[in-house]
């Protein structure tokens, strides 16, 4: 491997890692607070991408307009998620993981149908925002500007979440509910409201991830399933309830994938499964996690 390749593979790996982090962080947040593995996350990711297309269209937007479109898509997705949580999900929190998993999974397929009816089966794709459609040279290797922007977006989201969770009253409440939702209720915290809010926040993060991939991935009604296994691998490897763990795992898995393409390329598609196997055998709570999947609400 040449130095050029080393540079670009590292940047590719980190950028893909941040993309995975953006997809997985909401999954991790929801599990950390609510104790459920919400695979319907994939549906919100897809919805976010389609709504970004709906609001922004196929033609190139200015970056501020793109960001506005992304936020709009995130808010609408969050609102839909909040309604779904209040109407459906809160009825099944106390069930077994298997039932919740099946329920969420079924919801992805319902979302596939809804998206097909609304936007049709044909692939759609957005443009890169103006000024972000080319590449920059890093140590002589061409790196897409969009890849760098995804890294920046990942860092901004990480900082924003850290601020929200550790520097605000809302974060204080969320952390209390995450640590012990039963006691939080007995102490007068409106746990149901926190759950709805966190569920919606998770959906908002998924939708932002979806908006950010819309210029690089064809939007099809199956988009909800595309990242599901990778996102699942990221949160399990990182630790289901650990947001920093998700970031670390996403970058490790992203880098592993990139390096494998250049070295043992036949193994690259299996890097995520290998990561899952290794972690589940050696450290079931994940790299930075504290909880295993056995933990349920309360």
């Amino acid at each position: 491997m040449t130095f050029d390749e080393l540079v670009i593979v590292t940047v590719n790996g980190i950028s893909f890692g941040f993309l995975l982090f953006l997809v997985a962080v909401g999954l991790s947040l929801v599990f950390g607070v609510m104790g459920i593995l919400n695979l319907a996350h994939g549906a919100f990711f897809m919805l976010g991408a389609y709504l970004a297309y709906e609001f922004g269209g196929a033609a190139a937007l200015s970056l501020p307009l793109f960001i506005l479109v992304m936020i709009g898509s995130g808010l609408v997705t969050a609102a839909i998620a909040a309604v779904l949580e209040a109407a459906l999900f809160r009825r099944i929190y106390y069930r077994e993981h298997l039932e919740i998993l099946v329920f969420a999974f079924a919801l992805i397929f319902v979302a596939e149908g809804a998206v097909r009816l609304q936007w049709g089966p044909n692939p759609l794709i957005m443009s890169y925002p103006e000024g972000f459609a080319s590449s920059v040279s890093i140590f002589g290797a061409p790196v897409p500007e969009w890849s760098l922007l995804i890294i920046v977006a990942g860092l901004v989201i990480l900082a924003g979440l850290a601020f929200l969770l550790f520097r605000t009253r809302i974060g204080y409440v969320i952390r209390a509910v995450a640590e012990d939702s039963h006691m939080a209720g007995a102490l007068g915290l409106n746990v149901g409201l926190v759950f709805t809010g966190v569920f919606a926040l998770g959906a908002l993060l998924a939708a932002i991830g979806g908006s950010l991939v819309a210029p690089t991935l064809a939007l099809t009604p199956q988009l909800g399933l595309l990242f599901l296994v990778q996102a699942f691998a990221v949160v399990v490897v990182g630790g289901l309830d650990s947001i920093p763990g998700s970031l670390v795992a996403a970058i490790i898995l992203g880098l592993a994938n990139s390096f494998l393409v250049f070295t043992f390329s036949g193994w690259a598609p299996y890097s995520f499964y290998l990561g899952l196997i290794v972690v589940l055998l050696l450290r079931p709570q994940g790299i930075l996690g504290s909880r295993e999947l056995t933990k349920q609400v309360g």
């Binding site: 390749e5 993309l19 897409p144 990242f227 393409v261 250049f262 390329s265 690259a268 598609p269």
Partner: peptide
Amino acid sequence: EVWPPFQAASFSDHITKLNN
């Protein structure tokens, strides 16, 4: 020659490799 898997989410490494 590069061989991305069917329905890959990211082609960037294969693109880089081919470009090189």
